[in-house]
Design a protein around this nucleic acid. Structure first.
Lengths: 215, 215
DNA sequence: TCCCTCTCGTTAGAAGTTCTAACTCCTCAC
DNA sequence: GTGAGGAGTTAGAACTTCTAACGAGAGGGA
């Protein structure tokens, strides 16, 4: 509140316009995908001319970066909110699936085919670490007391720099990676439409994978 | 041979030019991704002017369709060749991974984020059925004699239209879907670069998934 | 062998895109 | 009130896909 009042009117207007641009961008992405995102079209829909948007975003890539950041933020918050209510690993996984199905293009923007020359900025990796932490916590909690030492866990015991500050045992790291890739496997193929025409329920497959993860 | 000689010189020239266009297109896709594919750039690199390519491809989408078809064909042939040498399920899976790593953009073109308004033609689904058949055969062969009836298998027993002409039991269908999504989960995240910076070996994860599939 | 036809490649141009440059105008801060 | 600077404008360059109209040359039939 106090911080909001300390901003100048111009700053407030600026953040408001930026927010509206991103809102329109999400609308456009949801219908036509990220590669069809057009600054010109957004500007026209907002009632101003194309180049005006370059006051707010240096270029198309910066807008996409901001969208990616927002998507990561949204997923991290979703998982954090679920974890705060005491959700266990399956509940977190279902929250992830629900988040993905809410806006498929948003999921594909961050976890789908990367934009050719696009490089993710550092702070998005920080948020993705938040996401990993939420899942890692749940993985460590879901782990059976006497978890079998798999070859993957053995490998991760000596390659755990990416989770250096997390106290989870190697078996939990292995569970996390397995969880992540399996859920992404089902979700990405489902969202990309590779199951359409096959006439089975992807949710059954998703639940099957979930059940297989936790014996 | 006889068929080749029965074609007219114009036809032969036409197919040759189409092949060269697609070759250049693959080069471009390999370096900059499918969304950066430019007909103009291809034409210039071939020493002719932009619109000339429209004699060979109705539009950009038709070129991409042809590339997708070629990629599917290549994967189907790769798996068929492996299966012909008596490769079992793990060997087929490794052939798939090797095919994907050979040209990441080629894999992402068919199994990655779909092009916005793009619709796959019917004959590509026929080739993808070939791919599924090769894997389904191996799944049926790899299945233990007394396979446990999972909820997924029960669901697929009544939703097997996509594999209607294949004699595999529901348990094999379940194994196939599980195999497909798990391998794709590892491969797509690896190819999209989501593991870079984590400094572990994706192959260990891939082998771990493979081992988990066949107890 | 001659000639007609058809296909190929060309240039011109329309309608888009991103993005820069220069200019006006209005608002905010002093 | 007035100066400074930010916002939005138009013009335009350099791209893109794709259509239209044209010239030239090669192929196939008589």
């Amino acid at each position: 509140m106090a911080k909001t009042e300390s901003t100048t009117p111009r700053e407030r207007y600026r953040t408001q316009v930026r927010a509206e641009v991103m809102e329109r961008a999400w609308e456009q992405i949801a219908t036509a995908g990220a590669s069809a995102l057009s600054l010109n079209a957004i500007a026209k829909r907002m009632g101003m001319s194309g180049p005006a948007l370059y006051r707010y975003f240096a270029n198309r890539d910066e807008l996409i970066t901001e969208l990616v950041r927002e998507a990561y933020r949204s997923l991290a918050d979703t998982l954090a909110a679920a974890a705060a209510t005491g959700a266990d690993l399956p509940a977190l996984a279902r929250a992830l699936r629900s988040w993905a199905l809410t806006d498929p293009q948003r999921y594909l923007l961050v976890y789908g085919t990367p934009i050719p020359g696009y490089q993710a900025p550092e702070d998005t990796t920080a948020i993705s670490r938040e996401i990993a932490t939420a899942l890692l916590d749940a993985c460590a909690a879901a782990l059976p007391p006497a978890a079998p030492a798999s070859p993957l866990a053995a490998h991760l015991a000596t390659h755990r720099a990416w989770a250096a500050n997390h106290p989870a045992p190697p078996e939990a790291l292995a569970l996390f990676l397995t969880l992540w890739t399996r859920l992404h496997g089902v979700l990405s193929l489902e969202l990309a439409g590779h199951f359409t025409g096959m006439r089975f329920d992807p949710e059954v497959l998703f639940e099957s994978e979930l059940a297989a993860l936790l014996p």
